[in-house]
Design a protein around this nucleic acid. Structure first.
Lengths: 108, 108
DNA sequence: GCCCGATAGTACGATTGACGTAATATCTGG
DNA sequence: CCAGATATTACGTCAATCGTACTATCGGGC
């Protein structure tokens, strides 16, 4: 799983959000380092919904503009747990190798 | 940066290795969960060398078989530090959201 | 009055990286 | 003598991201 996809799932660990809300949440979570384009976002939403990791909570029409709210499914939350473990394992392996070179990752 | 690429750099934090050695090191580092195909590996090596993140250390011919050894450059090590910080930040953000749902990532 | 930016989503082409497999070639072990 | 490990090259394909343009509404500033 790539970073944009991971951050979309992460954004949905809280309240259900609609696409644009997810966009803003991802930007905030990543401190502005990841700003999703429209293609990436809505492509990821369709894909994740197809995989059952997220689901449409409800749809609202505000001023003729559609708002489609997504929530994280239990399966999506489980998958995210697995991904967190993978990221931590990889980060630790790299950090161990870098320490032997005298380099240290700054604490985030 | 995706996982296979990240693990190739991680494998090279130690001694310089040739392609096949990197293959085995990545498999070991990931506890067998990531087994690179030839296409992925050599594609990544060419790309990373082109970006200056790794460099050819030396070439050996053993029984007419080529062994091309790669080392991590300072630039590559720096990039890896950045990536470790990114992974940790993302993992922490997701873990925080999951905790609010009562889920916890098992310690790796 | 008009343009800009924020809001919200759709559509589509381009690019990148990864995936998968086959070919080549040598050496070792059963 | 064949399978499997060693070691690299060379394809073609696919998935995900990137990037941009388009539609459409609303509010604010010039």
């Amino acid at each position: 799983m790539q970073e944009p996809t991971f951050l979309v799932l992460t954004a949905l660990t809280g309240e259900p959000l609609h696409g644009y809300g997810i966009l803003q949440q991802v930007t905030a979570l990543s401190r502005g380092t990841v700003v999703l384009g429209a293609g990436t976002l809505y492509g990821a939403l369709d894909r994740l919904a197809g995989q059952g990791l997220i689901a449409v909570e409800r749809e609202e029409a505000v001023d003729g503009r559609l708002r489609r709210y997504y929530r994280l499914t239990d399966e999506g939350a489980g998958r995210l747990v697995t991904e967190v473990e993978r990221l931590r394992r990889n980060a630790n392996a790299a950090a161990a190798g870098l320490r032997r070179r005298g380099l240290r990752a700054r604490l985030a």
